[in-house]
Amino acid sequence: MDNLGIVFGLLGAALATFLAGTGSAIGVGKAGVAASGVLAEDPSKFGKVLIFQLLPATQGIYGLLVAFLILSKIGVLGGDPNISATKGLLYLAASLPIAFAGLFSAIHQGNCSVAGIGTISKKPDQFGKAILLPAMVETYAILALLISMLAVFNIPGLNL
């Protein structure tokens, strides 16, 4: 059990990807269903509803981003894979903000996008306002991403 560090690190990367990715999949899926409904009535709104559908997609990408950073820091993508169990756990901890904030914010952003799609199907000129409301939800995913990223950047420098 000498290499427990890399196990924890990889677990962190996996959590960030699959939790945030799951959230985005749910959110994008919901928005996609609503978007198809609008398209059935008015295909010319494709561009607009597509943007709404894409809004909850970012959390999955943030998760991927943090996971990729962790993978490269723990040496899975080449480099030295010998990291201590403590550092491994630190990476695991660093992945948690984006994993969970990503999961839940993407689901709720998806709900919000569905409502936004409803808005522009009736009032296409209110696009600017309608798109801002789901973006509010994303704030918390961004904050989580920031903390996850700052942590991952700075863990290698810690003297442990």
């Binding site: 991927l64 981003l65 950073l69 490269s72 961004i142 991403l145 920031l146 990223m149």
Partner: peptide, 22 residues
């Protein structure tokens, strides 16, 4: 604190670009 998104999204662009290059 909300302006931290300037950093977060800026980093996200750069790092995702690096990921694809890698």
């Amino acid at each position: 604190l909300s302006y931290s998104r300037l950093l977060a999204l800026g980093l996200a662009t750069g790092v995702i670009a690096q990921v694809f290059n890698q």
